[in-house]
């Protein structure tokens, strides 16, 4: 039986992904080149997170 988690624990990863997503969406607006690549990496994070959860957190 696991202990109840605090709000900080529950929202740590979601907040990190949220801020990363917002940063990715905005950075590609500010120019091309490396900014586009950074946006691709940031917006791929949800896909990576779900793939990781499917590999590691299935039970």
């Amino acid at each position: 039986m696991s202990r109840a988690r605090s709000l900080t624990t529950i929202f740590a990863w979601p907040l990190a992904l949220f801020l990363l997503g917002l940063a990715g969406l905005v950075i590609a607006l500010t120019g091309d080149g490396w900014r586009d690549a950074a946006a691709w990496a940031a917006l791929a994070a949800p896909l990576v997170a779900v793939a990781a959860a499917m590999r590691l957190r299935r039970r």
């Binding site: 696991s2 709000l7 529950i10 590691l56 299935r58």
Partner: peptide, 15 residues
Amino acid sequence: YAPFMRKLDFGTLRT
């Protein structure tokens, strides 16, 4: 999301 995840780790999929 908070009440649903109180007992679960982030990313848990109870398949």
